[in-house]
């Protein structure tokens, strides 16, 4: 590991934030497409702490989605380590990665990715069922989350009967249903209008601020960087800057 990356990783820590959750050290990811090698991430070191809303910013091809995939255990790095507690998730088997995602990670996708044949409540239940064996407790948790995202009245509607914003709120409730420590959001406002996008950002702020969840929000939209407690800029697979914001903007004040 280079001194540069170690420094960048250590720079990411803050005494003000919660405990260290996940630490990437010298992580590289090379994709081989035919005879061409694409270095998507190049020696990235980054530490995620509890209660952070990390906005990963960068243009197309900067490596932000690859970063998200590696943190979420959807992919493995070509080099480097990704530690979650005592576990190097880079070395986990497919099955263990699946369990890691199930127990610790919540995903929110740009296109919501709800299961269209399940109602809003059932979509949330689907995720809750993965970690809960107590049906009563699970039902309570699902109702609580639907209330949290303001959809208790629309719980029995199918995705096709919900607006884009409502679908994304269901997706957030689904991601939260497993009570994960880390929430990974890939362009969560990318397919929403401005007002709805504001609502979603506000919800994510609420989850990190009030519930202490760590949220990594990947976007190419610089305008929404202000909502984060930390802004990580990526370029050509490297961390260009990693800044903390003592006073993040309320989502309602963000404009794009």
């Amino acid at each position: 590991m280079s001194d540069e990356t170690r420094t960048a990783g250590e720079k990411g820590r803050s005494e003000a934030a919660g405990p260290l959750l996940l630490e990437m050290r010298g992580v590289s990811k090379i994709y081989e497409t035919g005879q061409v090698q694409v270095r998507a991430l190049d020696g990235v070191s980054l530490a995620l702490q509890g209660g952070e809303l990390v906005v990963a910013l960068g243009p197309s091809g900067s490596g932000k989605t690859t970063l998200l995939n590696l943190v979420g255990g959807l992919d493995r790095p070509t080099a480097g380590t990704i530690r979650y507690g005592d576990t190097d998730i880079a070395s986990l088997s497919d099955g263990d990665l699946g369990r890691f995602r199930r127990d610790h990670i919540g995903f929110v996708f740009q296109f919501f990715n709800l299961i269209p044949t399940l109602t809003a409540r059932e979509n949330v239940e689907f995720a809750a069922e993965l970690v809960s064996h107590d049906s009563r407790q699970m039902e309570e948790r699902v109702e609580e989350l639907l209330r949290l995202v303001g959809l208790e009245e629309r719980a029995d509607h199918f995705p096709s009967q919900l607006s884009g914003g409502e679908q994304q709120r269901v997706a957030i409730a689904r991601a939260m249903a497993k009570d994960p420590n880390i929430l990974l959001c890939d362009e969560p406002t990318g397919n929403l209008d401005f007002r709805t996008g504001q609502q979603i950002l506000g919800l994510l702020q609420k989850l990190t601020g009030e519930q202490g969840k760590t949220c990594v929000l990947v976007t190419h939209n610089t305008a929404i960087a202000g909502v984060g407690t930390r802004i990580v800029r990526l370029r050509d697979g490297r961390v260009q800057s990693d800044e903390r914001s003592a006073n993040p903007l309320p989502a309602s004040e963000v404009e794009w």
Partner: peptide
């Protein structure tokens, strides 16, 4: 996409 989402959420094989 649905199946991949299920697996991403942690539903096992």
């Amino acid at each position: 996409r649905e199946t991949a989402t299920m697996r991403t959420l942690g539903a096992g094989r």
